[in-house]
Design a protein around this nucleic acid. Sequence first.
DNA 1: CTTAGGG
DNA 2: CCCTAAG
Length: 614
Amino acid sequence: MMDCGFNDYPEPEVPRSCRSARGRGPITKRWEGNRKHSCEILASVAGNLLEKGDNSLHTDASCGKNLHDACDSVISKKEVDEGQFLNEELLELGSSLEKAFGCNPGFQSFCNPDKFNSEINPMSKDFRRSGLLNSNKKKAFDDSNFVPDVIGGKVLGVPERKVEAEPTELRNQSVKDKTMTVTCGLEDLMKLEGKQPELVGPGCNVHTASVRVVSRDDDESSFGSAYPSTMVKALGPPLGTGNKRIKKISDSSHWRVAPDVDGNYSSTDGKVKEVCCEERIGYTQENTQKIYPFKKRKFFNQDFSTSNRGSNRDGTFDSSDKRINGKQGTAAIGGSSSMTGQHVFPNSKECNVKLSIKSFKVPELLIDIPTTETVGSLKRMVMDAVTSILGEGLHVGILVQGKKVKDDNKTLVQTGISQYNKHSNLGFILEPEHSQTATSPFTKNESLLSRIKSQALTRHSVSLSGSVESDFNATPALGDNLSNNTNNESKALIPVPRISMEALAVVPFHRKSGHHEYLKRRIRRPFSVSEVEALVRAVEKLGTGRWRDVKFHAFDNAKHRTYVDLKDKWKTLVHTARISPQQRRGEPVPQGLLDRVLAAQATGHIGSRNKRPK
DNA sequence: CTTAGGG
DNA sequence: CCCTAAG
């Protein structure tokens, strides 16, 4: 995978759409080409345009739309597969294109509409009419002067420096330079400091100008959007398409405060921040401001973030993983240098430090809630609390050997963050803006204060602290610090603030066995008969094709049923109704319902027709 | 964002 | 359920 590049890809396949699907004949209605194909096409287009220096391109949103969408959506893709890599390259191209043509966002502006539609864009009618879609794609490209170099999977048209040089350089650099993996544990910090822990978290680089942040989207398991957004702010808005990507990354993650496998209330399993300090990014001679997040992920996540436990080729992650888990709360900091074998001179400009901070834990979050409250309000409560912890403005502290580094101008080497110090302890903390004062951000939050109490729980309340406290036992340093801070005024009247000051230890997250870290699939929730009944009734009323309405009418409060789900269910219902009862599986649907399904299906869009006649 | 369809 | 082209 490390050697992946355009050159390494085999000859493009004929898109699926060009073949027959399941022997039912060619699909002409839609272009079903895969992303790989998209990428090759785009790469070809880009290569040609870049080569020609043609920046007098027509802007045609329609022809670029889907490629743009595709590129954009790739960012949220988790799979590290061929397709993704291609798409990363694709995005890389986008970056080059933006610089070359100043067009932005995405790829909406670099297509020559005529050429694109007739020769390149398989989605266009012109293209289909041209017959190229149904012929061998290689030949199509062969015959097209516009796209000469995709053959053999090699895109020569794209200037090498744009596509290949940069990843190559990055890769080489990663390999030959000293790298260090640092993970942080609250316990370390506390042991080192012997004082009250503070918010520990990512963001170690926000004060450093030359570093870049990688934020991987890990869905609901993410520790929270607060971090990505913090990062974004710290780095400034990315250019062009990056904006949207970052937004997506931020949007897609949210808090989850739920017991993990150990029963700890934590927001673990998933969030990985990788921070890379890179002095020289050999991208192009042009000033390259932008490195897409995916890129970092691509080139670095093999070190520590790929989730396939034990499947890492280089074993880097595994070793660190064992170390982390084995020590249960001791220093999860260490050098990871299996990729490297050399020493780095402290003064060397080649020195890179690779930092990996995995997930966070809320050490104590006691909820005081009447038993009559709903689960939903409990969730909201926890959400509020956690969000508030991070929402009040944090800054980042760095601890080396237990000492807080205050001078932001020191270099990492001067500070002792280097390969030579890989056995030393390095910690990152997120602290409240006014951690010095007794007043905490929470004093502003009446509702929170009224709801969440730190220590003594009101009688009649439901304590959720059990698991949390047991968690404390696993992190004795925290407990010590709690008692050590008895005289801290924050304990006196408003215990809650201490949450903010203690909170959010960086902990090694416990990957759930067999659970892929990302690309999480929703749990399967078969429709019950009553749900089917509701669905059928709604469709009978509204007709097919109005799934959003169906959702509102019949499944408005079933948040786990999206209108797509309903549409899919209807699809399977229709199928079920058409097959013999012997072939049906799952909970049997009453034949009467199935009959109604068929009837409603036959009626089709009658509902829509009523709504919008003619 | 919704719809429609293939995977 | 997922993915995603199209609108």
